[in-house]
């Protein structure tokens, strides 16, 4: 457990910054909702009928005029990109940093098996992602209460669960990749997250394009 705790402590600052940024942006979005709600009624149809553009961001399936629809589109994009990037970064750097900063020699000459090191590091990444999502959910619920609106709980939970699943998946893929690369890890991680995001857009637009890894993102929309 020592390494698990050490990883969490080391990641604490960066996790806090990510949590704060994502939650803050979502908070702002939700607080904007009452303002937009009135106007949305009239433009909602327009948003839903911009063809490919609407589809790209899932606006054909969700309505801008309802909190859940608005939340799914706006906050979904923020959490999708932000959470995805965080998951990719956390997953790809946790192993690669040991090599990059030459600390592997310190860690691996202690009486601890590599299996245990890897397990503890992976667990710490998964923990960070779960904490990030819990905080975001918390902030969303509080800010929704603040504007006197209610989420449709079933959809809300389903959506966040899908995001969590997607982030866990991305982080695990990156974690796996990072075991094989020596440098350029951050670039690969961010690139992968970005590529998946664009693939999601393509997926939304075209009915033919299907990509299994995107199912999570797509469920949400």
């Amino acid at each position: 457990m020592t390494i698990y705790i050490k990883e969490l402590r080391q990641a604490f600052k960066s996790l806090c910054i990510w949590k704060a940024s994502i939650a803050f942006m979502m908070l702002v979005c939700i607080l904007l909702f009452p303002e937009m709600k009135g106007e949305m009624d009239s433009v909602s149809d327009m948003f839903a009928n911009m063809g490919g553009f609407s589809a790209a961001f899932g606006m054909d399936k969700l309505s801008f005029g309802e909190l859940m629809g608005f939340y799914g589109i706006e906050c979904g994009n923020i959490l999708g990109i932000g959470g995805g990037f965080f998951a990719a970064l956390a997953g790809i750097s946790v192993l690669a940093n040991e090599e990059k900063e030459r600390t592997a020699e310190f860690l691996l000459t202690h009486p601890v098996s590599r299996f245990s090191v890897i397990t503890q590091k992976l667990l710490s990444v998964l923990t960070q992602i779960i904490v990030l999502n819990l905080v975001v959910v918390g902030v969303s619920l509080i800010s929704a209460a603040a504007i006197g609106e209610n989420f449709e709980m079933k959809e809300f939970i389903l959506m966040h669960f899908a995001f969590l699943l997607m982030q866990l998946e991305i982080s695990c893929i990156c974690f796996g990749i990072s075991a094989f690369i020596k440098r350029g890890s951050i670039g690969i991680g961010l690139g992968l997250a970005l590529a998946l995001y664009f693939m999601n857009i393509v997926c939304n637009i075209s009915e033919q394009a299907e990509f299994p890894a995107l199912y999570a993102a797509s469920i949400a929309r």
């Binding site: 080391q10 030459r102 020699e105 310190f106 000459t109 009486p111 601890v112």
Partner: peptide, 22 residues
């Protein structure tokens, strides 16, 4: 028996590098 051996060894690497910010 790596782990067993390592618990009785003190190793000082030629390059002393540690985790940043600790």
């Amino acid at each position: 028996d790596k782990a067993e051996i390592l618990s009785d060894i003190g190793y000082m690497p030629s390059e002393a590098t540690f985790y940043n910010g600790i």
